[in-house]
Design a protein around this nucleic acid. Structure first.
Length: 735
RNA sequence: GGAGCUAUAGCUCAGUUGGCUAGAGCGUUUCAUUGACAUUGAAAAGGUCACUGGUUCAAGUCCAGUUAGCUCCACCA
């Protein structure tokens, strides 16, 4: 064997060998007819390249997959990527503007879509290359993309089913509008950012009202107070009050509603139903007029009088100035700190607007036929919300770590109808067509002329919600779908629990009456040395490929798993990777030791025995040293311990077990012991050497899920007879 | 405002159902060896397990409170 282990050479060669022999594809493994075990890869966004978080997430899954495959299960891991609608289009538009000073309005819809799709697929190929470098045993023959033809069919089928059931509806509702990206944003795609703005107090008739946003106040003709506020008992609900406002006299109506916080300011507020969620709901409750003040681009409408046509940002100080001139400005608090809603995908400041949008009704009752959900019998009435709750409550799906159960329930309780339409081009176009006053929803466009398709596209999570079964061929009843669904486990980061995991539960609950996976294992986030998230704005990202280049994939993988508890965040530390590179080297040299001893002493045979045989040898031999007698027992213990820990998704324990044992027990003590026997030409040296080679053989198996490359390479070189039969990747897990 | 998490060696973190004489990696110090491996081996130093109380034969671990930090959700008229 070579003196030093060359990770770069070996990794490329070994990965190619696995792929060429089709060892990632369960169909090619005729011996593995066992129980199915399946995972779908959380599809990375095609916005750019992978980061360390992906490396961590995907390593954990590969460990499980390799472990289960070696245990003889029919193991499938499906790869794929996510088109990430808004994020991808935003990234593309940014680049396009930077390069060519053009935007989406310079292109026809189809042309623009094709350009983004090409950009996405270029990114996809980068990502696929990275996944391979990480040594992931994904079945490439089943590669999927959330925006490919097969997934389009799944999306349209799902949409139509929900539409026909009345679960998808179109409605005017206040939505989070991003004027920058010109699209709607889902509630949970909003990120609040703290900001300091002046807070103005104005005289509004007999009242004092406060606001940060005077530019929304033109249409305010309702003044709201708490029904039990003693200060305002003189004012009656529905009472009209004439007062002077920005653009002249106005008649305001008093509304009493308990949503008002009496403690806050004067306890009185005016409302802007067209541009505020709370106000909109309040207006609906009392049947109040709703009038739009700001348009989609943030420009003031005619209602603003002399300010019409101005952008809100520029108009604000002018409006304040005018109110001040009219003597209506009471005071200004310059140090008011509040949260501003921004689009987590594109960064624009959210301007709530009333829009016609498509929604998924999470509270509407429907009959669930053919239910496999334990607490919802077939034919029973239920709602999407109930399904989402029941699958967890009934333990049909287990969440680990458990603390996320509470967080999940809390989220479901506060869940509102899901706005699934987006006013962007990149994504699945809503499968609804219009002709005059007719509306048609279907998988294919209507045959006759004159139908025009809805121009909205679907929220990216609508398509990724189908991921566990759309990747397996659904809506067709394929062998894959029948064999591998529900999947065994899903392993995303906890930050994606609501976006994705909950949506998958919703989708498979409604469409299949089933769970999408049996277990949710949530892992933590990889952070930088200072505990910050990796982010583009901080520019603190570490490229996993760079680490692989420096230390090898095995070292990176082992370092990510070692010493980080389940569900907790992981601090990225380059020194740890370096330490694990030393471990790879140690392993390599253990193999060299075996070869070296055999070349020096031809009486030593490299025999491979299983635990039972080793124990028999120990029993049948007399005068064995204690170290030799104990080794089979120790091997047995470590196998049991490690197997248990991987089974329980305790990867850090498993990694520590095998690291500690193979280095400090097996190498430092046992190899040293056997070395002494050989030097002293001890009568038991052959027996001890057999125990040693057998033990090392097992260690290679135990380490394989964590460090697939070096273990396979050593296996191929040191145990060629066994390797000829089956590569390490598909050989049997020791028992 | 509501909820959750974290606090253990200089640093990053483990410590699973209470049994601890509290561990690992990196770093530090001393010594050893040209050996399968200096990408090594042997050893050492380093901790009032955030604080205060409680439960218990026994608490890093369970409970209550305090302090500090982080995160999520809601919302800010």
């Amino acid at each position: 064997m070579d003196k030093a282990y060359d990770a770069k050479l070996v990794e490329e060669k070994i990965y190619k060998m696995w792929v060429d022999e089709g060892l990632f594809n369960p169909d090619n493994l005729p011996t593995k007819t066992g129980e199915p075990f399946s995972i779908v890869l959380p599809p990375p966004n095609v916005t750019g390249a992978l980061h360390m978080g992906h490396a961590f997430e995907d390593t954990l899954q590969d460990i499980v997959i390799r472990f289960q495959r070696m245990r003889g299960k029919k193991t499938l891991w499906v790869p794929g990527t996510d088109h990430a609608a808004i994020a991808t289009q935003a990234k593309f538009e940014k680049d396009l503007y930077a390069k060519e000073k053009k935007n989406r309005h310079d292109f026809a819809r189809q042309e623009f879509f094709t350009m983004i799709q090409e950009f996405a697929l270029a990114n996809q190929s980068t990502i696929l290359g990275q996944l391979k470098k990480l040594g992931l045993s994904l079945d490439w023959s089943r590669l999927a993309f959330t925006l490919d033809e097969k997934r389009e069919k799944a999306v349209r089928t799902a949409f139509k089913k929900m539409f026909d059931e009345g679960l998808i509806y179109q409605g005017n509702r206040i939505v989070n509008w991003d004027p920058k990206s010109q699209t709607t944003v889902a509630d949970d795609e909003i990120e609040y950012k703290e900001q300091k703005d002046p807070f103005y107090y104005f005289q509004y008739g007999p009242f004092i009202i406060g606001t940060v946003r005077p530019e929304t106040k033109f249409g305010d003709k309702y003044v709201v107070m708490h029904p039990e506020d003693k200060r305002y008992t003189a004012f009656k609900h529905g009472q009209k009050i004439d007062l002077e406002w920005i653009n002249g006299p106005l008649t305001a109506t008093v509304i009493k509603d308990s949503v008002v916080d009496m403690e806050k300011g004067s306890g009185v507020m005016t409302i802007t139903p067209a541009h505020s969620e709370v106000d909109f709901e309040l207006a609906q409750r009392h049947n109040l007029d709703i009038e739009q003040v700001i348009d989609d681009r943030g420009i003031l409408l005619p209602i603003a009088g002399e300010f019409e046509g101005q952008h809100i940002k520029k108009a604000r100080p002018l409006i304040v100035e005018k109110l001040k001139e009219k003597g209506l400005l009471v005071k200004v608090d310059e140090n008011y700190v509040h949260n501003v809603a921004t689009n987590y995908r594109g960064g624009g400041v959210i301007e709530p607007q009333i829009k016609k949008q498509w929604f998924v009704n999470v509270n509407k009752e429907f009959v669930l036929e053919n239910s496999k959900i334990p607490t919802i019998p077939s034919g029973a009435k239920t709602t999407l919300k109930q399904i989402m709750k029941q699958v967890i409550a009934s333990k049909a799906i287990a969440i680990a770590p458990e603390r996320f159960e509470k967080i999940y329930y809390h989220w479901i309780d506060n869940l509102r109808d899901w706005c699934i339409s987006r006013q962007i081009i990149y994504g699945h176009q809503v499968p609804v067509w219009y002709k005059d006053s007719e509306i048609y929803c279907g998988i294919e466009a209507p045959k006759e002329d004159g139908w025009k398709q809805d121009t909205d596209t679907l929220d990216t999570w609508f398509s990724s919600g189908l991921w566990t079964f759309s990747t397996l061929g659904w809506p067709d009843n394929t062998v894959d779908f029948k064999t591998f669904h529900p999947t065994s486990v899903i392993m995303p980061g906890y930050e994606i629990l609501f976006f994705w995991v909950a949506r998958m539960i919703l989708m498979s609950g409604f469409l299949l009456g089933d769970i999408p996976f049996k277990k949710i294992f949530l892992h933590g986030i990889v952070r930088d040395k200072l505990g910050r998230k990796f982010s583009k704005s901080l520019n603190n990202g570490v490229d996993p490929l760079e680490m692989i280049e420096k230390y090898g994939t095995d070292a990176l993988r082992f370092a990510l798993v070692f010493g980080g508890a389940a569900g907790n965040d992981v601090m990225f530390d380059e020194q740890k990777i370096r330490g694990m590179k030393n471990f790879v080297n140690k392993l390599w040299n253990m193999a060299r030791f075996i070869e070296f001893q055999m070349s020096q002493d031809t009486s030593l045979k490299k025999e491979v025995k299983n635990i039972e045989e080793l124990q028999k040898i120990v029993k049948d031999s007399s005068n064995l040293h204690d170290a030799d007698k104990e080794m089979p027992k120790k091997l047995c213990e470590i196998i049991t311990e490690l197997t248990k820990n991987i089974d329980n998704y305790q990867f850090n324990f498993a990694a520590e077990n095998v690291y500690e044992f193979s280095w400090h027990e097996f190498a430092d003590l046992y190899i040293e012991h056997v070395k002494t026997l050989i030097q002293n030409n001890d009568e038991n040296k052959q027996t001890a050497f057999t125990i040693l080679t057998s033990g090392y053989f097992m260690i290679l198996h135990l380490l394989h899920p964590f460090m697939p490359f070096v273990t396979e390479e050593i296996y191929q070189r040191l145990y060629p007879e066994e390797a000829k039969k089956t590569a390490l990747i598909i050989s049997t897990w020791p028992k």
